[in-house]
């Protein structure tokens, strides 16, 4: 029952609830925005910690592997122009341009039977990478987050100018006046 592997989610949840509590209880609008940001960062952690693989490395091909890979790809291209590609027919450069993007195309990951995360490249890249997909999602989320934060702050400034306060109850009291 008690698996020690889920502590990362617990930290995320604690932070999430701290942000949530700030948003609920604090009347100050700027404080609410800070609370929302804390909440947001905790969601980032949730995703990033899911994508981490123990023993993995950052999703950038290391230099030594890279030289090997680049050399191989160029070889495929040169040979492919001469006719027979040296690698199997699933080598990308050997395919016609539209070959992979036909609407009906489905990719069947052949990696399903082997342990994921230890997928080896065709070029014998032995590196284990962490999952790059959550990184991409969160990268997008961070930038959208700063955009929305700035919009919220701008609204705070406008509210201050109109009402003279950024405390929630005072704004409500002003609204209730006829």
């Amino acid at each position: 029952m008690f698996s020690p592997g889920v502590y990362n989610y617990w930290v995320v949840i604690v932070l999430m609830m701290i942000g949530f509590y700030t948003v609920i209880t604090r009347g100050n609008l700027v404080k609410k925005i800070i609370g929302l940001n804390v909440f947001q960062v905790s969601v980032f952690w949730l995703y990033i910690s899911m994508g981490k693989i123990v023993g993995g490395t950052a999703p950038i091909t290391p230099d030594d592997v890279w030289e090997h890979l680049e050399h191989d790809v160029e070889e495929v291209q040169v040979d492919g122009q001469n006719g027979e590609p040296p690698h199997a027919a699933n080598s990308y450069a050997a395919l016609p341009r539209e070959g992979r993007y036909e609407p009906g195309f489905e990719y069947h990951p052949p990696a399903d039977d082997e342990p994921a995360g230890q997928v080896t490249h065709e070029y014998n890249d032995p590196t284990v990478y962490s999952n790059p997909v959550p990184h991409v999602l969160i990268l997008t989320a961070i930038v959208v987050g700063v955009a929305t934060t700035s919009l919220g702050l701008a609204l705070c400034v406008r509210i201050k100018e109109e009402y003279g306060t950024i405390e929630e109850d005072e704004i409500q009291a002003l609204d209730d006046e006829p």
Binding site: I53, G56, L69, P109, E122, P132
Partner: peptide, 22 residues
């Protein structure tokens, strides 16, 4: 945490890791 067999690592990420450099 950090389990390589987690569902998140089973699907499209493998395709990206294998194919994107090429």
């Amino acid at each position: 945490y950090g389990e390589a067999d987690a569902p998140i690592n089973k699907h499209v990420a493998n395709y990206y890791i294998r194919e994107s450099p090429r």
